[in-house]
Design a protein around this nucleic acid. Structure first.
Length: 491
RNA sequence: GGUCCCAUCGUCUAGCCCGGCCUAGGACACCAGGUUUUCAUCCUGGCGACAGGGGUUCAAAUCCCCUUGGGAUCACCA
């Protein structure tokens, strides 16, 4: 590679950013950075029906959220503007006209009914699925006459005889016989160009050197290589990434799970964890280090190291990885990231959290090793925000507490003892030690107090240290819950 | 069905290109144990794979062929 590479990510703004698309973008970006090249963002908005500016904005935001920056794009401009395909229409039509006048493309008047019948016939014959070139045989006079008569036509690319071999950077050599390649449609009957056509026009005009995309495009590649040559361009290098698969082993779709980046964003996955995990689907740093930064990705990324086989989206591992990132954060950072989810869950308002900022950070510090994503926090700490009467008792926690026949009595006596002990303002460690001594002095095992107490305070079966829990809740309210818990257990 | 791609533990993968260091390494999940007031974190250990068959070679997870299995794609959608 003698010149700095230019790569592009070309999403279609007809929906949210697909998680597989996000990975494609990430690998393109990493490749560009690795080799000091440019990463171009181009919006493929030629589907006027479904494309919206809102989706475009969301896609850009999603990429930025992941930590990807682009050198050229619709928002930042660049030397090959415009970066929205719809704004390049005139150029596409011009190039299509050139090919037609050179005899490299031809008008086709076949009706969709005839085409469909042809396809059915070919399916029955178990033969090649392609246009039969009926209209390629029309003389220029015939074509002109039919145009003049007002007949609708599409423009088809005339695939020459021969074969094409591409050197795919992840797959190696891939060979196609032109006899198997269809005379595909370049211009629709309404005069608008198709994807296979514009993508090549724009890649040539934008001087794209490496096309890195999903494997579903591999089969389109010979069509595009042929078009490069026809347009007088040099084909770029290609790299076809393995597909991201659902648990059913098929291309990841909404059927088998959440597919958009925003789904994971709203579920509170740290962005660095998402980027890291996406890398792991099809690429490995060295086979032993699972957790790494984007800088390490850039420093080590090579297309040749990308896996060829599809990767089933491993949600368990993703969640584990998110937890690793959560625990890497400092408490103030984590509190800041969790706060929106606590607010969204309706536990507290933004101003309430702001007022109790130091307290909230303590809460986060106590729960940080139990959550994997930011959004898991509210469910774990709801007991701190509800009224004593509304505290729900978890079935397992209740069962555990009920195993101790004397639980109500133990709780009441403990409350009395606690009230007296608190008077001397013990430290948390002193209180912990004293509590255990108190239980032992009564000839009880520790769970005889701790299980009913945990139920009374938090309503949950497991969780944070109980001395921490009571302090976070406040001793006065804790005593009230102990009394209430004793009554509920006795009843 | 045509064309194309792929094939290492249940999952993500290292090793393959440049055969021997592989009685195949790591991670997630799972199981067992330790720590803990419980849960979680953390620590220790365990389970667990080269799809099958032929070659080539002194030697094959690694190279070649076949079979089988899986996937992608076959639009006037991108």
């Amino acid at each position: 590679m003698n010149r700095p590479p230019r790569v592009r990510f070309a999403p279609s703004p007809t929906g949210r950013l697909h998680i597989g698309g996000a990975r494609t973008a990430l690998f393109n970006w990493a490749f560009a950075r690795r080799h000091g090249g440019a990463f171009v963002l181009r919006i493929e908005d030629t589907d006027f029906e479904r494309s919206t500016r809102e989706f475009e904005r969301a896609i850009l935001d999603g990429l930025a959220w992941l930590g990807i920056r682009w050198d050229e794009g619709p928002d930042v401009g660049g030397p090959h503007a415009p970066y929205r395909q719809s704004e390049r229409l005139a150029r596409h039509v011009e190039l299509a006209g050139n090919l037609r006048s050179k005899g490299l493309a031809y008008a086709c008047f076949c009706s969709s009914e005839r085409l469909e019948a042809l396809r059915e016939q070919q399916a029955r014959d178990k033969s090649r699925q392609a246009y039969d070139r009926t209209c390629a045989l029309l003389s220029s006079e015939q074509v002109q006459a039919r145009h003049a008569a007002g007949e609708k036509s599409v423009l088809r690319f005339k695939v020459p005889s021969g074969s094409t071999t591409i050197q795919d950077r992840v797959r190696g050599e891939v060979h196609f016989e032109h006899a198997d390649v269809d005379d595909w449609v370049m211009l629709r009957s309404d005069g608008l160009p198709t994807y296979n056509f514009v993508v090549v026009c724009d890649d040539i005009d934008m001087r794209i050197t490496h096309v890195i995309r999903g494997e579903e495009h591999l089969i389109n590649t010979p069509k595009q290589v042929l078009l490069y040559t026809a347009l007088g361009g040099t084909p770029p290098e290609f790299a076809h990434l393995p597909l991201m698969l659902g648990t059913d082993g098929k291309k990841l779709s909404k059927r088998t799970g959440d597919t958009s980046l925003e789904d994971y964003q709203s579920q509170g996955y740290p962005p660095a964890a998402v980027a890291n995990f996406l890398c792991l689907q099809g690429w490995a740093l060295d086979g032993s280090r699972e957790i790494f930064t984007l800088e390490q990705l850039v420093a080590n990324f090579a297309l040749e190291d990308v896996s060829k086989g599809g990767a089933i989206f491993d949600l368990d591992k993703f969640r584990w990885l998110a937890g690793e990132y959560v625990r890497q954060e400092t408490v103030p950072e984590l509190a800041k990231h969790c706060a929106p989810h606590v607010i969204a869950a309706g536990l507290a308002s933004a101003s309430e959290l702001e007022q109790r900022h130091a307290w909230f950070e303590q809460v986060v510090a106590c729960e940080r090793e139990r959550i994997h994503t930011y959004a898991e926090l509210p469910g774990r700490i709801a007991w701190l925000f509800c009224t004593d009467q509304d505290l729900a008792f978890d079935a397992k926690a209740l069962e555990a507490a009920r195993k101790h026949a004397q639980a109500p009595q133990t709780l009441r006596e403990y409350a009395t003892w606690l009230t007296a002990t608190l008077a001397s303002s013990p430290s948390k460690d002193e209180l912990r030690t004293a509590m255990k001594a108190w239980v032992a002095a009564r000839g009880l095992k520790l769970p005889a107090l701790f299980q009913p107490l945990r139920l009374a305070i938090t309503g949950q079966a497991g969780g944070l240290d109980l001395v921490d829990a009571m302090e976070l809740l406040g001793h006065e309210q804790s005593l009230a819950r102990i009394e209430l818990g004793a009554r509920r257990l006795a009843g």
